[in-house]
Amino acid sequence: MSRRPPTAARLVAVCAALGVFLLLAIAAAVSLGAGPAGLRALLPGSAPDPVARAILLEVRLPRALLAAVLGGSLAVAGVVFQALLRNPLADPYVLGVSGGASIGGALALVLGLGAGAGLPGTLGLPAFAFLGALGALVLIERIATVDGRLTVYTALLTGAIFNAFSAALIYLLQSLASLEQLHAIVFYLMGRVPNDVGMRAIAGLGAFALAATVLLFSTAREFNALSLGEDGAAQLGVDVERLKRRTFVLGSLLTGLAVAVAGLVGFVGLVVPHLLRLLLGPDHRVLLPAAFLGGGSFLVLADLLARTVAPPMEIPIGAVTALVGGPFFLVLLRRRHATHGPV
């Protein structure tokens, strides 16, 4: 296969195509679901139906937008952690932030903060989870910094150990929790897109995710150089320490926020970057923005499935992403190997 090096025109074309795909996914998520409310209720000239309108604009639309932001964040975090670790098998959870976030979230639920009205009820869980993520971020950064340098492999090992430790801590919390709390913790950790996040919070999250993605995108060519190793990147003029630190912090913040809001939604951060790399090549100038849009689309569609497969039940979105993403990914990988040899 002859692949020309990417150009600005290619970046624009890829973003336009994936942007349209994301809009279509959101439109589908808004118009489909339990009950008769359809996109028609929003068309001018049709009989006004306030209930349908409310379902579409105040329930489904925010949820679809939130799913898009979360999916985009996780996919971008996946791309940059893979670049940082020079390993296509890394995912956003590999460096331990997710462990910290889940401890925080589980703790909030045991303390009874995750339910009911009022500020503690709506904000308590994500706030605790995000604090947990920040704690993990600082701790792992400290441990992995040797002589002023962030040692990526120490970070990886520390992250793995910290995740195992946090799993143990969560078992402990679960054993202390009431049956109802236990149920809430299990569902939180499985990953779900919550219904109760307001539009302003979603806009804030979206703005942060976009800003972090733009900042990471500004070092896209440095991520390419990093695939030559840390020495190789430095010898091409990259300030490697600065790049590693920025990437670790921004990727961890993206991951931490996503886990704080939605729990452990797996596979997005692994499958989407991989899929896009197979389709578009490994250049981060195209891959990074594509991951934001592609990850968003993936999670919007996964959440749509989670809501509509067995109404009125909702299956956890984490189960959907794993059940759909896993086999799809394996098929793709096998097909790719058959035509191009091992990658």
Partner: peptide
């Protein structure tokens, strides 16, 4: 010795020399 984490083509790797 050079190991590559991702499937860049030889031309793409050579173009990285233009980075600085």
């Amino acid at each position: 010795e050079s190991r590559f984490g991702f499937p860049f083509t030889a031309l793409e790797v050579t173009l990285m020399g233009r980075h600085p």
